[in-house]
Amino acid sequence: MRVIIVGGGKVVYFLARQFASKGHKVTIVTDNEEEAGAFSRRLKATVLPGDGSDPGVLEEAGARRADVVLALTAYDQDNLAVCQIARRWYLVPRTVGLINDPENEEIFRKLGVSVAFSATQIIARILEERADFEDISNLIPVAEGGVTVSEVVLRTDSPVVEQELQHILFPEGALLGGIIRDSEVIVPRGGTRLLGGDRLIVISESDCYDQLLHLLTGEESE
């Protein structure tokens, strides 16, 4: 896959490293010359110093043949311009734009950014969930936050411990994806009995997430 990343900082560095290690062809565009030098020394990626929202620079970065363009600068206006020019002018099939002001999410989607994500909101959501339930980790919102995937550690005093799955009434929009017990993955079946310390991977619609957590932990969220 050919990936163009526009932006700078640690996120871009680690993301580029990860893409490159998976064999993707990465080009980074950053307007910080010093950083461009550091990136090209440390990464297996093509680095282009310049303004990624400049059509000429994007073209030089290979926009005509790119599979995906990621716009990760700290400025919403620049991320929007990068995605729009990439998508609508160079016909890049997929554009991903970082939104800094969560209120701009709607406009990004309306204006042709394929995936618009707000780091602020994702972090806020994770923190909120963590603050409520300390046994829950790795909360990943998918489908624009409509569905969450999370890992719940069962305490020994959980109301579902020692019960078989077929007797547990899961909410309709929730699904148990797997059980991790002593670092082994157990595929859930009707006769599987839950034990304290089990790590449950649960997939849930956001609407019934609270209900699901209540079922598994016995705790009430607010």
């Binding site: 929202s53 400025y75 919403d76 206006q77 620049d78 929007l80 311009a81 406009i107 204006l111």
Partner: peptide
Amino acid sequence: EDNVNLMVAQV
């Protein structure tokens, strides 16, 4: 800034 103008206009 061009990008500010373009974004504000579109919004």
